[in-house]
Simulated assay, not measured.
Amino acid sequence: MTDERLTPADVDLVTPNTARIYDYLLGGKDHYAADREVAEQLLAVIPEARTAARENQAFIGRAVRFLAREGVRQFIDIGSKLPARGNVHEVAAEVAPDATVVFADGDPVVLAHARALLARTRRAAFVRCDPRRPELVAEDPEVRALIDFERPVAVVLDRVLHFIEDAAEAAATLRRLHGVLAPGSHLVFTHITQEPEPESGGDVGHVFKPTSGHFWGRSRAEILGIVGSFELVEPGLAYTPQWRPDASAPRIADPERTFTLAGVGRR
């Protein structure tokens, strides 16, 4: 777990944080007692929460590798969380060592994590942003110093869209993002859904009520409406374990129990 003596001064150690809860579920070390308490409460309601987090992370890795093999060499990871391993720049470099990656987030712990992670990496950088306004990243001079928006860019919105309360605003946000990206660009996204167990929504909402972020699980149709400005590549919108699974990966018996739909959209 995180050494609180080394924690940035502006980090709230009392309020549970969704990025740090996710880190705990992934088996990382960047979390505090308040985060672990909420995570354990979530596991009591959704026992598959750890599997869901791992499958979510595995999907991001597969999507990034897929796009790198397709020739994409620029990635912007918005709302990048705190993965202990398999970060976007690491995965992209497996296929394309010349790939450039920008991490963008507003959480001070995430930013501190990124600083340490990227200290010796020349082709990656981090910037502060509001993940709910991903299109504004294109206006950041630090981002533009590394990313050429006249060329294809892959934007990763991992567990970001469900933090935008209004579905119409989420769709408008993606239309604006679509407008600043060059043809051939892509969107990689995940979104929580409660379709497999609608009755659990109230319990999950209660668990996350004390956290610093509130999310809205949506139906498949609602998510398709939000990402409609992008053309989804095969297999379309799928539960994370079902999106182009690796042949060697263990089979997930109930993929819908990840409660996470995901996809890759083309500009």
Rank of each mutant, 00 (worst) to 15 (best):
residue 3 D to Q: 06
residue 4 E to T: 12
residue 4 E to Q: 13
residue 5 R to G: 06
residue 7 T to L: 15
residue 9 A to T: 12
residue 9 A to L: 12
residue 10 D to L: 05
residue 11 V to A: 09
residue 12 D to N: 14
residue 12 D to F: 02
residue 14 V to E: 06
residue 16 P to D: 00
residue 16 P to G: 00
residue 17 N to C: 03
residue 18 T to H: 02
residue 18 T to M: 01
residue 20 R to V: 08
residue 21 I to C: 03
residue 25 L to V: 06
residue 27 G to C: 02
residue 30 D to H: 04
residue 30 D to S: 03
residue 32 Y to Q: 11
residue 37 E to S: 07
residue 40 E to Y: 09
residue 41 Q to G: 10
residue 42 L to W: 04
residue 47 P to I: 11
residue 47 P to C: 14
residue 48 E to W: 01
residue 49 A to S: 14
residue 49 A to K: 01
residue 55 E to Y: 00
residue 56 N to P: 13
residue 61 G to R: 05
residue 62 R to I: 01
residue 63 A to K: 08
residue 63 A to P: 08
residue 65 R to W: 01
residue 67 L to F: 02
residue 69 R to K: 03
residue 71 G to N: 07
residue 75 F to W: 05
residue 75 F to D: 13
residue 80 S to H: 14
residue 84 A to Q: 11
residue 84 A to E: 12
residue 86 G to M: 01
residue 91 V to F: 02
residue 93 A to N: 01
residue 94 E to L: 05
residue 95 V to E: 15
residue 95 V to R: 03
residue 97 P to E: 02
residue 98 D to Q: 15
residue 100 T to C: 10
residue 102 V to S: 05
residue 105 D to C: 05
residue 113 H to D: 13
residue 114 A to R: 08
residue 114 A to T: 09
residue 115 R to H: 15
residue 116 A to F: 04
residue 116 A to L: 09
residue 117 L to Q: 10
residue 118 L to I: 03
residue 120 R to W: 00
residue 121 T to Q: 12
residue 122 R to P: 10
residue 123 R to N: 15
residue 123 R to T: 15
residue 123 R to L: 13
residue 124 A to K: 15
residue 125 A to E: 10
residue 127 V to E: 08
residue 131 P to M: 03
residue 131 P to F: 01
residue 134 P to F: 08
residue 136 L to R: 05
residue 140 D to A: 06
residue 141 P to G: 07
residue 143 V to K: 04
residue 145 A to K: 15
residue 149 F to S: 02
residue 150 E to C: 05
residue 154 A to D: 06
residue 159 R to T: 10
residue 161 L to R: 00
residue 164 I to P: 01
residue 165 E to I: 00
residue 165 E to A: 12
residue 165 E to L: 05
residue 166 D to K: 11
residue 167 A to R: 15
residue 170 A to T: 04
residue 170 A to H: 03
residue 170 A to Y: 02
residue 171 A to W: 06
residue 172 A to K: 14
residue 174 L to Q: 05
residue 175 R to E: 15
residue 177 L to M: 11
residue 179 G to R: 12
residue 184 G to A: 06
residue 185 S to T: 04
residue 187 L to K: 04
residue 188 V to E: 06
residue 190 T to V: 05
residue 191 H to S: 10
residue 191 H to A: 06
residue 193 T to W: 07
residue 195 E to M: 09
residue 200 S to L: 14
residue 211 T to R: 12
residue 211 T to S: 13
residue 213 G to P: 02
residue 214 H to T: 00
residue 217 G to A: 11
residue 217 G to M: 08
residue 218 R to L: 08
residue 218 R to P: 12
residue 218 R to Q: 08
residue 236 G to W: 11
residue 236 G to K: 09
residue 236 G to P: 04
residue 242 Q to N: 11
residue 245 P to F: 00
residue 254 D to Q: 14
residue 256 E to I: 03
residue 257 R to E: 00
residue 260 T to F: 15
residue 262 A to Q: 02
residue 263 G to S: 07
residue 263 G to V: 05
residue 267 R to C: 02
residue 267 R to Q: 06
